[in-house]
Amino acid sequence: MALQIVLNIVIAIVWAIIQNSYTGVDFLVGYVLGLFILYFLKNFLGFDFYFRRVWAAIKLLLLFAKELVLANIDVFKIVLSPKLDIEPGIVAVPTKLKTDWEITLLASLITLTPGTLSMDFSDDNKYIYIHAINVPNKEEMIKQIHDSFERAILEVTH
């Protein structure tokens, strides 16, 4: 992936040299051209097109922004309802993620999403223990949210 980025920057520099004008706009045009070239060469060179990962990261960021706003509306409803009828609990959620930084990212995202708070990891990193503010009507929904987050993270890293 790092090699592709370097290659793309080299193409942009070559483009600026060919144009014989060295401004930011020329560099940008060269970079976009480099993206196209890399896209068409991806089968020939036998690598995975790196911009797909960048795109997946952008999608993850948008998903995160949406969930953050939903989380706050959720807290808003619970705190301002006249009667507190919450049923908190701790749920073990299995995860497929392997490396430490993926799990850290997932735990942070869980903490900032509606009604859930990551509390502990099992020793073999296969389960994340999550404190949920409303267990009975949410367990399925929580699973869904985590599936979507987990899938988005996997898309970025694989």
């Binding site: 989380a71 807290v75 705190v79 507190l84 903490t111």
Partner: peptide, 24 residues
């Protein structure tokens, strides 16, 4: 709202829900 949450919610864990999300 997150300050209200700190007062109204029953225990430490639910309070930290309000503290982390709304304050952030």
């Amino acid at each position: 709202l997150s300050a209200f949450g700190l007062i109204r919610l029953p225990d430490l864990y639910t309070r930290s829900h309000a503290a982390t999300k709304s304050a952030t």
